[in-house]
């Protein structure tokens, strides 16, 4: 498996895709902060800038899935996996390798983008408002495992379906559609509501946190909330990794 991981790192570092993706994100966040600062007014503050991330932690999961898509989209169509499998690397090892490689790449991109975000915000915006840098930084450990679960599930869904677009749609339904449905269904079915609250999209839902221009209450403010985030993320990683190991184990290519 190490050889497969090494070869994938070689591929990522020798092709443009991840650099372009990371570069575009860095450019967008810097431009956003510059534009906010130049335009002035009540939004030209760091609090507003940080609140875009703090209020929408699911963006980390989406970005994780996008990283997987950029790295492994077209893998089946191009037939690259055929060479790897026929070279004696099992599907489980490939699945694990893809998860590790894309998690590493996503972490590096996230670090670069957050650095650019914070530096540009601190440089171009006024340091004031309820959402502090601390709130953003504390959010990272809270959402990291949840984002990792989103990423692992994206590797799984891209591997499961013949067409990449199907995998992406299933990812969207599982991560963003189903939690809402389960939450509404939970209002009628006892027990389901409490279970649905553990799903990340509901965990960070409107009732769970309140981040705006006048206050900043996040899920990870309390030890219990932070623990819920970590447990939810860890469970997600475990569940999707297990499903992937089982489903992709003997899949025809």
């Amino acid at each position: 498996m190490m050889n497969y991981i090494k070869s994938e790192f070689y591929r990522i570092t020798h092709t443009k895709a991840v650099y372009v993706y990371g570069g575009i994100l860095v450019l967008l966040v810097v431009l956003f902060n510059i534009a906010t600062g130049v335009l002035g007014g009540q939004y030209a503050i760091t609090s507003f800038s940080y609140s875009n991330l703090v209020a929408n932690p699911m963006i980390f999961s989406v970005m994780g899935a996008v990283t997987v898509f950029i790295l492994y989209e077209g893998n089946r169509k191009n037939g690259n996996l055929k060479n790897t499998i026929s070279g004696g690397i099992s599907r489980r090892k490939i699945f694990a390798g893809e998860c590790i490689v894309s998690l590493t790449a996503a972490t590096v991109v996230m670090a670069a983008v957050l650095t650019a975000w914070i530096l540009s915000a601190e440089l171009f915006l006024e340091r004031t408002g309820p959402v502090k840098l601390k709130d953003l930084l504390m959010g990272i450990p809270a959402v990291y495992l949840i984002a990792a679960a989103g990423l692992v599930s994206c590797v799984l869904f891209l591997g499961c379906f013949e067409k990449d677009i199907t995998g992406i749609l299933v990812w969207y339904v599982v991560w963003l559609g189903a939690p809402t449905v389960l939450l509404y269904a939970g209002r009628r079915i006892d027990g389901l509501f409490r279970a649905a609250l553990w799903l990340p999209a509901n965990l960070f839902g409107i009732n769970a946190q309140n981040v705006n221009m006048s206050e900043c209450i996040t899920v990870w403010d309390t030890a219990e909330g932070m623990a819920r985030c970590v447990v939810s993320g860890a469970a997600g990683v475990a569940v999707f990794a297990l499903i992937g190991a089982l489903i992709l184990r003997r899949r025809d290519l």
Binding site: H14, T15, A17, N78, G79, L81, K82, S86, G87, G88
Partner: peptide, 15 residues
């Protein structure tokens, strides 16, 4: 110990 080329060769277009 086996080298394979099944159907079209699997290549990365941008490499």
């Amino acid at each position: 110990n086996i080298g394979c080329m099944i159907e079209q060769p699997g290549l990365f277009p941008d490499m």
